[in-house]
Design a binder for these strands. Structure first.
Length: 495
RNA sequence: GGUCCCAUCGUCUAGUGGUCUAGGAUAUCGGCCUCUCACGCCGAAGACACGGGUUCGAGUCCCGUUGGGACUGCCA
């Protein structure tokens, strides 16, 4: 069987965005699945917009997502010669011709057609010029582009797309498209096809927005006498208003980088993204890497575009709720030692990291992370909500303070008493702490909940969290005692 | 305007003529659990765009309408 070779060819005009990442993921999965080769090819022929910085950002994004490639990155600009040679070959074989029509002339014709509400196609003015005519124009120094001589007459280009099935484009609906600019540089339709031929690409998996290019490229393949690859066009990712997502319209919200900064786990993003336009017939949605590679197939790709439910200005979700839910799922279920490096990175960035967390406090650190992770949504939460566990200074939520502490005036005395009892404990474990606090509640004839919630707030500044006894054990005796003793000051501040 | 593609709960989707009084996920709401909040579990609400055919039978096939999208560049 022929070796599968696929490619991901981003144009380096910005950061890697969700749509591009999705394309890369599908190609990567297909390569993994078939033990094939994934090639990264930077399509940088648009010198105006391409930047080196962008190349770095895209590769960086791919690496972060865990998408590995086998060849490249190749740079399209390095192969200009191949493109020119292909054009030359087509010129010699008569599949293309030089067109001397100027921008102005074409624009005028387009405009006229628009006025008549007519469909505009290049009218073929230069298609049938004689060799003498062409020679003459060239001698005069007239600039020309090279156009493809699309077959005229009935029929069309027929091909089978792995996703959309058999598609036909009539010749009459394809104009004599330009393949080389008047400055001699090749256009995407040409260079992309030539590169795919050189790279021996067997499967072109790309966005549905390229569906219209496909017949043209097939014509080029055929004119060059090359074997066609298989095509698979994947549906596009739209925003909630059904517009194609773009860096330009949505800014950072659609950049892979954004999700990294907001505390996404790369695999959670990959898992979410792959589901945007692909599914299995069973009900599985969570896949490990191996499971996903195993389950992936071109047949499972959907035909309809999907909406990436980005939330702008939503207080509750900063992006698609399903993406967040998936991230939270991985956060609380992934092997702890895989999560730890992310937590460490967050704490370091927030200035909360202490080397002992990886040293003599390692066991404590691990069990604490394990304790708190189940209610977190992103790795950012470890540095925000996790602050009371890793630092001495943490925010106290005003509303929570009122509800759990100030509302019960007696806590002003009870909390320090609790501090005393806890301080006296020989060993500070969830069990011993529970005994002490429940015992105190009985003694004071008060519902344990009042002491528990009061203590939680005094110790963490929060109203929610893991079971209190575990929380106290995690925060540690010394800090718990200190924080409980400070409780009266909250009342004083109010007076 | 033209060419092409698409159309199931808010969103992601299962569904390839009968098992669909349409399944799952997420989000929402309610309950259980409980020291709180999550998790988990249980439950509720929520969709086949519309109209015609074909067929004994249509979410599933065909046509039309509507809606959405892509392309329509000497961008990629």
């Amino acid at each position: 069987m022929e070796e599968v070779r696929v490619r991901f060819p981003p144009s380096p005009t910005g950061y890697l965005h969700i749509g591009g990442a999705r394309t890369a993921i599908y190609n990567w999965l297909f390569a993994q699945k078939t033990a094939g080769t994934l090639i990264v090819r930077i399509e940088d022929t648009d010198a105006e917009r391409s930047t080196e910085e962008s190349v770095g950002a895209i590769l960086d994004g791919l690496r972060w997502l865990g998408i590995t490639w086998d060849e490249g990155p190749y740079f399209q600009s390095a192969y200009a010669n191949d493109h020119r040679q292909a054009a030359q070959k087509l010129l010699e074989s008569g599949h293309v011709y030089k067109c001397f029509c100027t921008h102005e002339e074409l624009e005028r014709k387009r405009e006229e057609a628009r006025k008549r509400k007519d469909d505009y196609h290049y009218d073929g003015t230069c298609r049938n010029r004689s060799a003498e005519e062409i020679g003459g124009l060239e001698d005069e120094g007239c600039a020309y582009v090279i156009r493809f001589k699309v077959p005229r007459g009935p029929g069309g280009v027929v091909f089978e797309d792995a996703v959309y099935g058999i598609l036909e484009k009539k010749y009459r609906d394809i104009e004599d498209f330009v393949i080389v600019r008047s400055n001699g540089s090749p256009l995407y339709v040409l260079s992309n096809a030539v590169d795919d031929i050189r790279d021996r690409i067997t499967h072109v998996i790309r966005g549905q927005d390229h569906l219209a290019n496909t017949p043209k490229q097939i014509l080029i393949y055929e004119a060059l006498g090359e074997k066609l690859p298989r095509f698979a066009h994947m549906p596009l990712t739209l925003d909630p208003k059904k517009r194609k997502i773009s860096k330009r319209a949505h800014g950072e919200m659609v950049a892979v980088q954004y999700y990294r900064q907001r505390g996404f786990l790369p695999w959670a993003l990959v898992n979410f993204l792959v589901l945007l336009g692909w599914s299995t017939s069973d009900d599985r949605e969570i896949f490990s890497k191996d499971e996903l590679i195993d389950a992936f197939s071109l047949e499972g790709i959907n035909r309809a575009n999907s909406v990436f439910d980005i939330r702008k200005d939503d207080p509750k979700f900063f992006t698609d709720p399903k993406a967040i839910s998936m991230n939270a799922h991985y956060l609380r279920t992934m092997p702890l030692d895989e999560l730890l490096p992310y937590v460490q990175a967050e704490l370091e960035a927030a200035g909360l990291w202490n080397p002992s967390f990886a040293g003599d406090k390692k066991a404590w650190f691990e069990s604490t992370v394990d304790l708190i992770r189940s209610r977190y949504h992103t790795t950012k939460d470890f540095a925000n909500l996790g602050r009371p566990y890793f630092a001495d200074v943490f925010p106290m939520e005003e509303k929570v303070l009122r509800k759990n502490i100030l509302k019960h005036a007696n806590l002003k005395e009870w909390l320090p008493v609790m501090a005393e009892r806890l301080e006296a404990l020989a060993e500070f474990t969830p069990d011993s702490v529970e005994q002490a606090i429940r015992g105190l509640a009985t003694e004071l004839d008060v519902k344990a909940g009042i002491l528990i919630n009061g203590a939680r707030t005094a110790v963490t500044g929060q109203a929610a969290g893991a079971g209190l006894f575990d929380v106290l054990a995690a925060v540690g005796k010394e800090r718990v005692v200190r924080r409980l003793r400070q409780a009266p000051s909250f009342f004083e501040a109010m007076e």
